[in-house]
Design a protein around this nucleic acid. Structure first.
Ligand code: NAD
Ligand code: NAD
Lengths: 189, 189
DNA sequence: TGTATTTTGTGAATTGTTTCACAATAGATC
DNA sequence: GATCTATTGTGAAACAATTCACAAAATACA
């Protein structure tokens, strides 16, 4: 779009943070701008892509193709972020018949496929009850990172990274904030 | 299950935090245990339900019934957390024909339904491009809290709460952590 | 009933993060 | 090319969160 320069306050406005925050973070990662001249968009974008490893694609698998698993696997914009879903898995044989657009593999093929594609990260979208069991299996196959959508704390060796995404919490937190805001407001009536 | 008492370290273990953290948080909200006797499960659960308003159900709507919106609206465990999805909306007329289990309403009925059910919180799962526009509409109808799944910073009045859930970020962060862990490890070889 | 033990509750210390404030300087202006 | 101005980069200050450490109290047990 012809924009060659951006300033810390421009980026801060778009990101909803302060300009100081932007500069401190950039400084932390060695991103340098020009005093008075701001940051050059091209080199800034490249630097960010390197920092977030978006320049190299990462192969990931989705395990559990229910409501959430299907939604995630159909999302097309992951590619632009270096996230490459190479295969999806489910225990339910009914899901293996690819009536839908996406091929779902049986759990028996997890090992073969993760090895073939060098997969180290899995998205776990199975029910609460089977989460730990499937997690153990993934860890055994060499998975080193898990995005866990089930509301349980997974037990993993220290060399495995888990990021818990709890959508109920996310919604509840908004409900709570709204309640609190209203309560505060009614104090002034 | 017959458990009448829990200790800060029990809860901490399950939650993946320190016992001090648990006690400090409880203390902040006036939850009292017995020295040596721990916390009584029953009264603790009740206290938590009150703090998180889980005793009162909250009516919410889902706007945008694509991949994510459908997954969210089919999730049955929200009810147990006081989250009650009363209706779902989409601009696409094809979605209104309830071929699926869930009735999807046209956007024209948003006002009527949010008013009828006293809805103050909305889950926004529309494409990036229309997120701000739909957000404005929601705010106009009196919505006070938004769980935003689109990767844009919504502009809202100060009295509206927005919680941004960025699933690409969640996955990317795991990929990054795994990369960094591997890099560290290879320093020791 | 008295003593030992366990666990809470919380100030104080530590650690971490954000904001402030301003010197350094690249670029704009004349 | 001299001067003015806007913006960076970053120590220092302020603020926030976590951990430490231990007195107080409840329970267990002799
Ligand atoms: N859908 C949501 O909006 C939502 C919201 C909050 C939390 N979650 C959590 O996300 C997870 C997935 O939710 P969902 O709604 O997609 O559930 P779902 O029941 O629709 O799907 C789960 C899928 O996992 C498969 N599965 C079960 N056991 C398996 C195993 N051992 N190995 C492989 N696959 C197995 C099932 O066949 C099913 O297809 C759950 O833990 C849920 O609690 C979902
Ligand atoms: N699906 C995922 O896994 C995923 C991952 C990361 C981010 N997201 C984000 O979540 C949002 C939803 O993703 P999705 O995959 O469900 O998208 P989608 O395209 O499948 O669904 C979007 C839905 O919104 C409806 N819509 C469009 N404009 C509308 C309007 N003005 N009013 C009402 N409805 C409208 C469409 O008809 C469609 O049904 C997007 O912003 C996306 O970037 C999704």
């Amino acid at each position: 779009m012809g924009v060659t320069r951006v300033y810390s306050y421009t980026l801060a406005g778009k990101a909803g943070v302060t300009p100081e925050q932007v500069r401190k973070d950039f400084s932390e990662y060695g991103i340098k701008g020009n005093r008075r001249g701001g940051y050059l968009t091209e080199s800034l974008i490249r630097a960010i892509e390197v920092i977030f490893s978006r320049d190299r694609k990462s192969n990931v698998v989705v395990v559990g193709m229910g409501n959430l698993g299907q939604a995630l696997s159909r999302y097309e914009r992951f590619a632009g972020r270096g996230i490459n879903i190479v295969a999806t898995f489910d225990i339910d044989p009914y899901k293996h018949k690819s009536r839908s657009d996406i091929q779902v593999y049986p759990m028996e093929r997890l090992e073969e496929i993760t090895e073939r594609f060098g997969v180290t990260v899995a998205i776990l979208a199975v029910p609460e009850i089977s989460a730990q069991e499937v997690c153990d299996e993934l860890v055994n196959l060499g998975i080193r990172g898990i995005v866990n959508f089930s509301p349980v704390l997974l037990k993993v060796p220290q060399y495995v990274v888990v990021n818990n995404v709890n959508l109920s919490d996310e919604i509840e937190s908004v409900i709570l904030s709204v309640r609190r805001m209203k309560d505060e407001q009614s104090l002034f009536l």
